[in-house]
């Protein structure tokens, strides 16, 4: 079976993510995709480079999955986050959840992506359209 959490340099295959959460007992699936935006804090951005503390990020993601599964009756769940250089519009993160009923799929997916953003050791370096690069302002990592 494919791993349910993954930190990868390779492009995210969204169809594959959805296939991985298909389940005959599920009445619904939610999919969240995070994409690289062309602006940040009023500045035009050409692309991003994600840096990750891979071992820690994988451990955190597995913990998030375990936590989500204690809060919602999840049938299947997949989380993938990319690192390395990404272009505008590329998918940087995918969360897919399959549950018996839709309310749980929305709740679990929302919680997972919010917790990914708050607690994964990841950093973005923006390539600015006017030239130069800058680290995206973030928040202290949450436990």
């Amino acid at each position: 079976m494919a791993p349910t959490v993954r930190i990868t340099r390779a492009p995210i295959d969204v169809a594959k993510v959805l296939r991985a959460v298909r389940d005959p007992s599920a009445g619904g699936m939610t999919l969240f995709l995070g994409t690289v935006r062309d602006r940040n804090e009023g500045r035009a951005v050409r692309g991003l480079e994600y840096q990750v503390y891979k071992g820690m990020a994988e451990k955190r993601m597995s913990a998030i999955e375990a936590e989500v599964r204690t809060k919602w009756p999840v049938r299947k769940m997949v989380m993938v986050h990319r690192y390395g250089r990404l272009r505008i519009g590329e998918v940087s993160v995918a969360v897919a959840v399959a549950t018996e009923h839709r309310a749980d799929a929305f709740g679990a997916c929302r919680y997972a992506i919010d917790t990914i953003k708050r607690t994964l050791p990841l950093w973005k370096r923006e390539s600015l359209s006017g030239g130069g690069e800058a680290w995206t302002k973030g928040e202290p990592i949450g436990a």
Partner: peptide
């Protein structure tokens, strides 16, 4: 691989990460 508090004790062989504010997603 776990977020530590200032008072967390350190042991030989530990791996410590120095983490600026994060911005994933």
């Amino acid at each position: 691989f776990d977020v530590a508090e200032p008072g967390t004790a350190l042991n030989e062989g530990d791996e410590v990460g120095v983490l600026p504010p994060v911005a994933g997603g």
